[in-house]
Nucleic acid binder design. Structure first.
Lengths: 209, 209
DNA sequence: GTCTATAAGTAGATAGAC
DNA sequence: GTCTATCTACTTATAGAC
């Protein structure tokens, strides 16, 4: 069994530290200390701390783009949708350091701004595709204005739920339960679902509590 | 006309800078530079940067507690409620630096954590009082489970809308329009309103776009 | 109250030996 | 690839003159 390359260990360790104490509070020294390597060694593999952040962001971006490639014109079931939400929240939770200090990070690494905004747009678009699929299947009844508002609300919630949730247990930033987020997202949609689907969604949502 | 005291100018300037470039990016040197006073002078008035942050937070806290003292057992009208939301978003916008780097700030000034959480609880409670007033007046029809979810969602949105909105125009962090936030909040409640109130709320909400 | 000068500490990053 | 040593830059904060 080949040992993990130092470069990858740096990424893993950084991600764990960023998530647990926040990216701005993590110094390159802390990362190398945690790994029992020298700071010089870290800088052999990455030319700056920003490069680590950007590479991690790149991984996140890749995962998200993959996930958000929701096929249009396909009938999506409620269960498929909640599974999708589950995966979405898991990905966000794995890279929650980005969201916890979002404005700060995007202002310091400004090439990430445009990429993050693109992700946001794709997220909103994905929710719209899902809602429109429901609408075609007559599982959802919603007017244009409400649909816009709902999709924005879903995007907002997908972004900030985990941070908001963390606030309730700021003492340990380690574990984050994506479940409550999925629950909350489903409850945003429930009012617009057809009666049968509503009942189904209510029951299904409870699994996430 | 008496000139504004240096101490107050420090608070004003700090607030403006915090809001516009983010608290972590504002050094005491930048504040004193902006005011054309010496850093020593700043430290004559405040013993640390943290003290400035805490005093500003105190002002925010005071405003919010004032605002959130919603009387129970009183019939609240839809218009009163949207006015309340308006004031709420304005207060948040005025102190948006707190929210833009929330996790970061709360982790560095940890005495603020408990105070912030208390505000969150009060916020959720205020939304609950409002919804229950609507329910008593038969303006709202909502079940317990949905009410919980709605109040949490309102709190989340009240916290993060302005940050979320700022993301769309990260180039200039100066101006923030609280209107869209109010609109979004109203649209969260609309599905649960009685038909007449729904129509009213839809119309009223458009004023905030 | 306000200034200048500077201390003390920390972060990011580099040089050069092994 | 990895280490030690070190540099530069910056930030907070203080000392002491005016």
């Amino acid at each position: 069994m080949a040992k993990i390359k130092t470069r990858d260990r740096i990424l893993d360790t950084s991600l764990a530290l960023f998530n647990s104490v926040g990216e701005p509070n993590v110094t390159t020294l802390l990362i190398s200390d945690e790994m029992d390597i020298s700071p010089g060694n870290l800088y052999y593999h990455f030319k700056s701390k920003g490069d680590i952040v950007e590479e991690l962001f790149g991984h996140f971006e890749e995962e998200m783009l993959d996930l958000l490639a929701v096929p249009e014109d396909v009938d999506i079931s409620l269960d498929q949708q909640s599974f999708f939400l589950h995966l979405l929240f898991e990905a966000v939770a794995r890279y929650r350091f980005i969201y916890q200090d979002l404005v700060n990070i995007l202002s310091r690494y400004d090439q990430l701004q445009v990429r993050f905004k693109r992700l946001l747009k794709k997220k909103t678009a994905a929710f719209r595709v899902i809602c429109e699929s429901f609408r075609r299947q007559e599982k959802m009844d919603i007017e244009a204005e409400q649909l816009d508002s709902l999709c924005e609300q879903l995007t907002l919630t997908a972004c900030y739920w985990s941070s908001f949730d963390t606030l309730s247990h700021l003492d340990n930033r380690e574990k984050v339960d994506p479940g409550r987020g999925v629950y909350q997202m489903m409850h945003l949609m429930i009012p617009y679902l057809a009666p049968d689907e509503q009942a189904h969604a209510r029951l299904a949502s409870r699994d996430y509590l």
